[in-house]
């Protein structure tokens, strides 16, 4: 695999992502929701004493989950579907580029955009400290751990989105597919709150995004969580590559 070709393709993807209005609309809406979620976290903590920190409140709050489930499908829906619909896929597949290089370039470009959308939220905690004039030390460890979890989720959900977009030329269908995959994954994790006995519960704990985030936002990091996310991501990317390859045989 050639890094050079992947980088050329990545640049093209970035260019197209950042000139499309979708990136800005999604970014704007996400920041409004995230800002509001942060404000609510602070507000609730102001009213009554809690065992939770601001970081925990912010990263485990309902609004952030909603944003997570919606953002990725919207960012990824066009990534292959648009190429199919525009016919540019034919130009791409007849250029000297390997299928892996295309998948990786598109994946990295999506992650870059995802990171760009999350980047401004890094200002939330320092701003809060500045305004509140509090001298209570905010520990940065759990915050960075939470962001690590955000990144891991991004890695996985972007690969869901890529796979969904690779199977259809219709962007709406792609968005619905990746939204469904993400939601299913989320809900599987929600079952830990129900009274399910035995080994099933253990499996659910193992894959529960909620549980992972809760622990990471407290600063409890284990290697098995990143390994789980990275393995599943690699699997999804491999599936995407297979779908791309199979389009040659089907067209």
């Amino acid at each position: 695999m050639s890094i050079r070709t992947t980088a050329i393709q990545y640049r093209r993807e970035i260019l197209s992502l950042f000139v499309s209005p979708i990136a800005y609309v999604v970014g704007f809406c996400f920041l409004v929701v995230a800002g509001w979620a942060f404000y609510v976290s602070v507000h609730v903590l102001n009213r009554e004493a809690s065992q939770w920190t601001v970081t925990e409140f912010f990263f485990n709050g309902f609004p952030i989950w909603i944003a997570q489930v919606v953002v990725m499908p919207v960012l990824t829906m066009r990534i292959f579907s648009e190429e199919y619909a525009q016919g540019t896929f034919e130009g791409l597949m007849t250029a000297p580029v390997r299928d892996w290089e295309i998948v990786l370039a598109k994946y990295c470009a999506t992650l870059t955009l995802y990171a760009a959308i999350w980047l401004p939220t890094l200002l939330f905690l320092p701003t809060f400290r500045l305004i509140s004039l509090s001298d209570v030390p905010l520990t940065s460890g759990p915050t960075w751990c939470s962001y690590l979890m955000v990144l891991l989720m991004g890695l996985l959900f972007a690969s869901f989105g890529l796979l969904a977009s690779a199977v259809t030329r219709n962007q709406i269908v792609a968005a619905i597919l990746s939204f469904s995959m993400t939601v299913l994954f989320f809900f599987a994790g929600l079952f830990i709150f129900l009274d399910i006995p035995g080994p099933v519960r253990e499996v659910l704990y193992y894959i529960s995004v909620f549980d992972h985030m809760e622990r990471f936002s407290r600063g409890l990091v284990t290697t098995k969580v990143p390994v789980f996310y990275l393995t599943l991501t690699a699997l999804m990317l491999f599936a995407t590559k297979c779908v791309i390859e199979s389009r040659r045989w089907r067209t």
Binding site: S16, V19, G87, T88, E90, G91, T94, P96
Partner: peptide, 17 residues
């Protein structure tokens, strides 16, 4: 693919570039 230049019938281009 390195040795050929192919122009498909639909002339696929990226309209935003």
């Amino acid at each position: 693919r390195r040795r050929i230049g192919y122009m498909p019938e639909s002339v696929p281009l990226y309209p935003e570039l």
